[in-house]
C-alpha cells in the first residue's frame, strides 16, 4: 500500500519536472542577451559556428521550417517528418534529459557538461547543508524539549527569543551581520579564498550555522509546541504512575511522540537548506552549486540554469513526498 503510494508519487514527478522544465525554458528564452555576449562583440562567423555547435541555431520550440523543407523534398514518412518537427532546442533538451544528459555548459565553451559541474560543486553545497542540518537538529530539538519541560522558565524564554529571531530575520541578513561582527570584533575573516574550501575545513562553520539558523528556530518552535501537547497526555501520566524514572518518561514517552511532527518537517527543512543556500553561498563566497547558479544567470548559461533549477525542483518535490510518506509511517491513523 505504502510502496504503491510512493511509486505513484514518484511517477507523478515526471509531469512536474516536465512542467518545471518547460516554464524555465520559456522564461530563460525571454531574457535578453545570449551565452556568447562578451565585452567585445564576437565575430559573426564565430558566433554562427558556436550556435551551430550547440544547436542554438535551431528554433526554440518546434522546427516547422525543416518539416516544410523535407516535405518539399518529397519526404512522406510521418515518423521522419515528426522527427524533423521535433528537431528544436526544447525537444533536444528533453531528449537529453531523458538520458540524464543535461548538455554542455555554455560558459565552459562546451568543455564540461552541466552534470559534471553539478557533480563537482555538489559536495561543497552538501557540506554547507550538512553543517546547517546538524546545527539545526542538534541545537534546535533539545532547545525545544528543554523549553517545554521547563515552560515559562528563563531557558524557555531564551529559546523562544532565539527561535522568534531566527524564524523572522532572514538568513542573508544574519549572514551579513555575522560577517561584519566577526571581522570587526574578532578580526576573523569568514570570507575565505577558493582553495580554503577543500575537505572539511573550518570555513564551513560560519555559512553552515547561518544557513541552519532559520531551520533551527523552526525546529525549536515546533518541538516545543508538540512537546507541550504531549506532556498533558494520559499515557504520560500512566507512565509516571507505574513508577518509571522521569528520564525514561521523557525519552521514551514524551520525546518519541513529540518528534513525529518534527520528523515530518525535516524533509522540507533540509530541501529548504539546499535551495536556500545560494544566497548564503554568494555572501560567504562559497564555491558551491548555488553560487554557480547565480553566475550562470548573469552569463546566460542556459543549460546550467536549466540543470540547477531542475536539480533544486527535484529536491523540493522529493521533500514534499517525504512529508506525505512520513505522515503515513509515523502516524498510522493518517492514511496516505
Amino acid at each position: 500500500m505504502l510502496l504503491a503510494f510512493i511509486l505513484r508519487r514518484l511517477l507523478w514527478l515526471i509531469p512536474v519536472i516536465l512542467a518545471v522544465t518547460t516554464i524555465t525554458f520559456f522564461l530563460m528564452h525571454q531574457a535578453p542577451g545570449g551565452p556568447w555576449d562578451r565585452e567585445k562583440p564576437v565575430a559573426s562567423a564565430t558566433l554562427k559556428a558556436l550556435n551551430q555547435k550547440f544547436g542554438l541555431d535551431k528554433p526554440v520550440w518546434v522546427n516547422i521550417e525543416q518539416v516544410r523543407a523535407r516535405w518539399q523534398a518529397g519526404e512522406r514518412n510521418p515518423v521522419r517528418l515528426l522527427g524533423a518537427f521535433l528537431d528544436s532546442q526544447y525537444f533536444r533538451y528533453l531528449w537529453g534529459l531523458a538520458r540524464l544528459d543535461l548538455g554542455p555548459s555554455y560558459r565552459s565553451k562546451g568543455t564540461e557538461s552541466v552534470q559534471s559541474i553539478l557533480w563537482r560543486k555538489f559536495p561543497t553545497t552538501a557540506k554547507v547543508g550538512l553543517v546547517a542540518t546538524a546545527f539545526a537538529v542538534v541545537v534546535g530539538i533539545p532547545l525545544g524539549i528543554f523549553g517545554a519541560l521547563k515552560q515559562n522558565s528563563w531557558i524557555d524564554y531564551i529559546s523562544l527569543t532565539v527561535a522568534t529571531l531566527g524564524v523572522s530575520v532572514p538568513s542573508f541578513i544574519i549572514g551579513v551581520l555575522v560577517i561584519i561582527f566577526l571581522s570587526q570584533a574578532f578580526g576573523i575573516k569568514p570570507i575565505r579564498q577558493p582553495e580554503e574550501w577543500q575537505g572539511f575545513s573550518t570555513a564551513y562553520l560560519a555559512p553552515g550555522i547561518v544557513l541552519g539558523l532559520g531551520t533551527m528556530s523552526y525546529l525549536t518552535r515546533l518541538t516545543r509546541s508538540s512537546m507541550l501537547e504531549v506532556i498533558r497526555q494520559d499515557y504520560v501520566r500512566t507512565a509516571r504512575a507505574k513508577g518509571l524514572s522521569e528520564f525514561r518518561v521523557v525519552t521514551r514517552h514524551m520525546v518519541r511522540n513529540a518528534l513525529i511532527a518534527v520528523v515530518t518537517v525535516l524533509g522540507p527543512a533540509v530541501a529548504g537548506l539546499v535551495t536556500g543556500s545560494f544566497i548564503i553561498e554568494t555572501i560567504f563566497n562559497v564555491p558551491g552549486m548555488g553560487r554557480e547558479y547565480v553566475v550562470a544567470i548573469a552569463a546566460r548559461d542556459y543549460s546550467m540554469i536549466m540543470g540547477t533549477t531542475l536539480m533544486y525542483a527535484l529536491f523540493v518535490a522529493l521533500a514534499n513526498l517525504w512529508v506525505d510518506v512520513m505522515y503515513g509511517v509515523l502516524d498510522p491513523r493518517i492514511r496516505v
Binding site: 512536474v16 535551495t275 533549477t309 533544486y312 525542483a313 529536491f315 523540493v316
Partner: peptide, 8 residues
C-alpha cells in the same frame, strides 16, 4: 508548489 520559489 514544486518550483523552488526563489529560483522562479
Amino acid at each position: 508548489y514544486a518550483f523552488p520559489d526563489l529560483l522562479l
